[in-house]
Each structure stands twice: as structure tokens, then as C-alpha cells.
């Protein structure tokens, strides 16, 4: 303690300089943080202002109607909103079991030699640009999917049954289900990596005592590991969902892009992001542009809500 004070007194010039430096540094950091916050606030405000003509003109109909007609200047977002929610939910449904399997294998079962290659491969999936997923989806996955999944299911459905209704569509592999599968591959690495981190937070003693009581691996995972990470896992899922909601290019390529409510799992649909990507560049009318900006605001609110929920869940896990 005294030594420290002495050394301070020994170099007074340097301390003064250091204090100035410290204050500048603090100010810079504060500036960086508030700049980001201001940008975020500005973004919301400008989206709200830009989309206002659409909200003012259509009111609640903007959210209820699925009528999207640029010629008549009538815009209803419910088709795109439903398409976004359905494709993201389906993607989550496919991605979650896989991600859970990957995470559990990597943490609990994987031979040490394989741990790195598999972990890296999953992380690499996250690095693939979404446009590449889109092209691969349209040119490679869609034809394969049409031939090996869609056609067999469509022909197996008994005529006149409910199955025929929910599997009807054009057998070329582009539609809600195909888009959801591509989305599932895209969000898989995010969920898997977060789940792996969560599983690693379980103290070895907890797991070892379960084994000590005579549980087998499956029982340990089901009764000890998974309940332990439960809240955090919900956060991980929300992060994946957040990414699925906003994904644009890959979905635009393969979802079939038709407005209105999807009537079957093979039907083509549209999401909020795909609609904006498709129409913004050529939107000339004021109302068309406003409606697209309003769509952006809706997507922002949905994503924000999901991410806030994720934050809350993960925070609770860390604290407990």
C-alpha cells in the first residue's frame, strides 16, 4: 500500500497525464455507447415516421388484412406476418432437436479427439453467407426436396382428406416448408453453440453425483442436465428464433413469394423480410414505400420482443 503511494508521488507528471487519459477514455466509451443507443432510437423513430402514412390510412386493417395489392394501393400485412411466424416456428421445430443432439453429444458423449472437428464444423455453418444458402436452396435443395419429400407425401395423401388439403401445392420444392428447413440449418449452429456453453456451466459435481446414484447417461441428461439449463435453453432458442425471423435472402429465394395466407405446408408464402427485399427497390408510390417501411417496423418489434425475452431468460439462468 505505502509502496504504491510512494510510486505515485515519484511520478506526478505521469499521474496527471494518466488522469486526463482516463477521462478521455471514459468519455470515448460513453460516446460509443450512447451513439449506438441514439442510432437505435433514431431507427425506430424513422421507421415509425416512414411507415406512418400506411398506419394512418389502413389502421388496424394493416395488421388484419392479407390483401397486398400494389396496383390498387391496398396493403395488408397479415400474410407476411403469419408467413414470418410460421416459417420461423417450423424452423425452430426442426432445428431444436438437432441442436440439442449436437450440444449433448459434444459435451457429454463425444470422444475428445472428435470434439474440435465437430464443434468447428457447426460453427462454420454459422459463417456461410445467407445468399449462398438461398442459391443452394433453390438450385440443389428444392429439386431434391420436391422429388424425394414433397411428391411422395402428396401422392400418399388420400384424396379428399385433410391431408390432401394441407399438403397441396406445386411439386417444385419452393414453399413454406422448404424455406423452414433451410432456416433450420441456418439457425442450428447458433442454438447448438449456446446450448453447449450452457451444458458446460453445469458443475461436474452435480453430474457426477447423479452418476454416483446409479443413473445411466440418458437419465443424467434428462433428469439433471436439461432441467439445470432449462431457462437458459429457452434464451438460446429465442436467439435462434430472432435470427430466423429476420432472415431475408435465403428465404426470398425459396419461399415462393406469394402474398396472402399460406393454405398448406407446401404452399408458397412470403415473410416480412422477403417482401421488403422484393419490393423496396422498385416501390414508386408513397403508400407502397410507407407500407414496406411499416412492415419493417413490425418486424423490428417482433424481433425486439423475442430478443428481450431471450435476454431475460439467459439473465435468470446466469443469476440462479
Amino acid at each position: 500500500m505505502t509502496a504504491a503511494i510512494e510510486s505515485h508521488e515519484a511520478a506526478p507528471a505521469r499521474t496527471a497525464k494518466g488522469a486526463v487519459f482516463d477521462r478521455t477514455f471514459e468519455a470515448l466509451c460513453f460516446g460509443a455507447a450512447t451513439l449506438l443507443l441514439t442510432a437505435l432510437g433514431g431507427l425506430i423513430v424513422s421507421l415509425a415516421i416512414g411507415g406512418w402514412p400506411a398506419f394512418a390510412k389502413f389502421g388496424p386493417r394493416f395488421f388484419i388484412s392479407s390483401d397486398w395489392d400494389p396496383v390498387q394501393e391496398v396493403y395488408g400485412a397479415s400474410g407476411a406476418i403469419v408467413g414470418t411466424l410460421v416459417s420461423s416456428a417450423l424452423a425452430l421445430l426442426f432445428a431444436l432437436p438437432l441442436a440439442l443432439g449436437v450440444a449433448i453429444f459434444l459435451v457429454e458423449l463425444c470422444p475428445v479427439r472428435l470434439r474440435r472437428p465437430i464443434g468447428t464444423a457447426v460453427e462454420l455453418l454459422a459463417g456461410i453467407p445467407s445468399i449462398v444458402y438461398g442459391m443452394w436452396g433453390l438450385f440443389v435443395f428444392a429439386p431434391w426436396f420436391a422429388h424425394n419429400v414433397q411428391l411422395p407425401i402428396m401422392t400418399a395423401a388420400p384424396p379428399g382428406s385433410i391431408w390432401e388439403t394441407i399438403t397441396s401445392g406445386v411439386p417444385n420444392g419452393a414453399g413454406i416448408l422448404a424455406a423452414s428447413l433451410i432456416l433450420a440449418i441456418m439457425i442450428l449452429p447458433f442454438i447448438a453453440a449456446t446450448l453447449r456453453e450452457l451444458l458446460l456451466t453445469i458443475p461436474p459435481a452435480v453430474r457426477e453425483s447423479a452418476y454416483g446414484l446409479g443413473s445411466n447417461t440418458f437419465e443424467v441428461i434428462r433428469k439433471v442436465s436439461l432441467p439445470y439449463i432449462r431457462t437458459g435453453a429457452v434464451g438460446a432458442i429465442m436467439l435462434g428464433l430472432g435470427r430466423a425471423l429476420g432472415e431475408t435472402m435465403a428465404v426470398t429465394f425459396i419461399i415462393g413469394n406469394s402474398h396472402g395466407f399460406p393454405t398448406s405446408i407446401f404452399a408458397s408464402g412470403a415473410t416480412i423480410a422477403s417482401t421488403i427485399a422484393n419490393e423496396f427497390a422498385e416501390a414508386t408510390g408513397e403508400l407502397h414505400t410507407a407500407s414496406l417501411i411499416a412492415l419493417g417496423l413490425v418486424l423490428f418489434v417482433i424481433t425486439f420482443a423475442v430478443l428481450a425475452l431471450a435476454r431475460l431468460m439467459i439473465g435468470r439462468q446466469v443469476n440462479s
Partner: peptide
Amino acid sequence: DSVKWPTGLGGK
């Protein structure tokens, strides 16, 4: 330049 198509699929 974009219309409400009565039927069909959209390609980008």
C-alpha cells in the same frame, strides 16, 4: 412493377 398475382409462384 409488382401486382397482386391471382395464382402462381414468385421467383426472385
